[in-house]
């Protein structure tokens, strides 16, 4: 087997792919959140932001293709790891008890991941693959969030995302070998802060739009 294929097919290689793509998503989330904060300002600002983004069309297309590629790698590798890790212990323990290493985030990674995949598809159908003639993106978003069920779904999805990132962020650094006695506590703290920002930043937006509708 070719050494490159061998490297990425190995356990540590697969983890490396998860870490690189996962951190890529974290960067995307940060940028996406920064942009969406303009929703709090109002209709004009958000539409201006969206228009400005689309004036960078070729760049946006490249980023979209990159995200799609990262998503394919992250999801497929994640599912392979989930399957392999499940079969690595064919007979389960009658009693399992944590010694305190695991967190809610770490325990639920594959499940929060699969839920996120479902959410991303739903989210893109809501706001990306829609007819935007004769209306603005702000109006589409504002109209969607007049429905309390939609708002509830988005809030839940953002809580799920916060848990996924609460473990994923520091875990990715550890996977890439970046565990340093001085910096690891900072990285873990930054991961928690980032997951809170994702949960609150994205999660409160639909609630705010529902409230002002």
């Amino acid at each position: 087997m070719n050494w490159i294929v061998q490297t990425f097919a190995s356990s540590v290689g697969k983890k490396t792919m998860m870490a690189v793509t996962g951190l890529g998503f974290c960067l995307f989330l940060a940028a996406h959140l920064a942009g969406n904060l303009s929703l709090y300002v109002g209709r004009q600002t958000f539409n201006a932001y969206a228009e400005h983004l689309h004036s960078l069309e070729p760049l946006v297309k490249v980023m979209e293709a990159g995200l799609l590629f990262f998503a394919a790698v992250h999801v497929i590798t994640g599912l392979v790891l989930f399957y392999q890790n499940f079969t690595a212990r064919p007979s389960r323990y009658a009693v399992t008890r944590s010694a305190g290493g695991r967190s809610v985030g770490s325990r639920t990674m594959p499940y929060t991941g699969i839920l996120l995949l479902g959410f991303v598809v739903y989210h893109l159908l809501n706001f990306h693959f829609v007819d935007k003639t004769g209306t603005t993106i702000y109006d589409i978003v504002a109209a969607a969030f007049t429905d309390p069920v939609t708002v509830g779904l988005y809030v839940c999805a953002m809580i799920v995302a916060a848990f996924h990132v609460s473990h994923g962020f520091w875990s990715a650094f550890q996977t890439l070998g970046a565990n340093h006695p001085k910096y690891m506590p900072l990285i873990q703290g930054a991961g928690l802060v980032f997951s809170l920002l994702v949960g609150l930043g994205f999660g409160l937006l639909p609630v705010y739009l529902l409230a002002v509708s």
């Binding site: 356990s11 983890k15 212990r89 944590s98 010694a99 290493g101 520091w170």
Partner: peptide, 13 residues
């Protein structure tokens, strides 16, 4: 063997 997902149960035990 399975793949590490940084659950940290090993170092605790």
């Amino acid at each position: 063997f399975g793949n590490c997902t940084n659950e940290r149960e090993c170092e605790a035990e």
